[in-house]
Design a protein around this nucleic acid. Sequence first.
DNA 1: GTCTATATTTTGATAGAC
DNA 2: GTCTATCAAAATATAGAC
Lengths: 221, 221
Amino acid sequence: MVSKLRRDAAASRARLRAAAEREFAARGFAGATVDRIAARAGVTKAMLYYHFDSKAALYREILRDTFGAVADRVAEVRAAAGPPEVQVRGFIRAINDTAMAQPHFPPIWLRELADGGRHIDDSIAGQLVRVLGTLAAILGDGRQAGVFGPTPLLTTQLGVVGPLLLAAVAEPIYERNRSKLPPGPAAAFSRHAVLDHVERATLAMLAPTASATTDPARRTR
Amino acid sequence: MVSKLRRDAAASRARLRAAAEREFAARGFAGATVDRIAARAGVTKAMLYYHFDSKAALYREILRDTFGAVADRVAEVRAAAGPPEVQVRGFIRAINDTAMAQPHFPPIWLRELADGGRHIDDSIAGQLVRVLGTLAAILGDGRQAGVFGPTPLLTTQLGVVGPLLLAAVAEPIYERNRSKLPPGPAAAFSRHAVLDHVERATLAMLAPTASATTDPARRTR
DNA sequence: GTCTATATTTTGATAGAC
DNA sequence: GTCTATCAAAATATAGAC
């Protein structure tokens, strides 16, 4: 019966993980309560402390796995090689796909940024650096191939994740307040349109002729 | 001595307001405590409850005033008239200026979005609608003048505020982890560069030739 | 592995003196 | 207007039975 017990234990743990992802996404670390997480998972609070050391440890495990999944996805994009423009598109789509497939990801990332990265330990930071490192490698390729100009790494990342993350969390708010918004097709909302805008804006910024995307005050060319 | 008392009372209230802005920005509504707000303000918790009805009421007052200030600023941009492109630049700079002048604004807005707008009452929503209405008017002008194409209002807004807000909250995180980031000028960070990117990307999207910024699946032209 | 019951701390909010 | 002292609710975490 060990296998039975193991399966059940794994199931409880998985249910707690999923419940915690939803709770942390909806209310943030401070706003979440272990009571609600356990209730959402259909188990008791004591079970949560059997499977996880603490509320903070559970939260950090989610951060680590989520950013790790993003890092893995963008690493696959880079491993598939291809022209730099295609890899940049792949990077953008990897972020967007993750945001779509794991709805807890955008609100949790936004809150963590607003928190100044309070819960980011070394292993979580390592995943974030992996993501940034992959983007840097893609941009470096493009620069060497002459298809990209001087590449402002962090501006590029913010230009990608900013609109994509905000679109994810703003969508339900827009829907809920549709009556208050100006009517007509101009105010229609589509995450696909945001993704499209990000792709165009990013590739335009990276084009060799767009030299002014660097701060004029410190241009070195 | 009424004036003396009044001045002191106003000073306490102002100190509490400022302390609350910092506390809510750093920790969010749920993470903030009235004890810390009072301590930061140099008064006691009882004073906080003398000047404000509750923690939530204090928070909502800050939301209302902050978004109201943004709405006022963009309204000034529009009132100054000028060509649509200039007004769009002015809109973007108004958001950026507010983020620079009131550091609590970006983290609070990001958290409120991640929260699904939980604390947004009707009067706060009214300020947000004012901002969006002003942007819609600017884009409408440009469309009528033929200098803008079909104008996706919400995509435009997200393309503007996404990178600007994220740049504001990410700056200290980048600074703190500079050693972990790839070295060299490519990884240098500049909020001015982000602002510059947002201006270019937004105006490029609005150009009449950029018809594909609308979701292809629902293009109606 | 899972539960009930409980200990402990923190926190929002108030009473009452000055 | 401002403070000290305190209450009551909520929340993290654990003990101990099954």
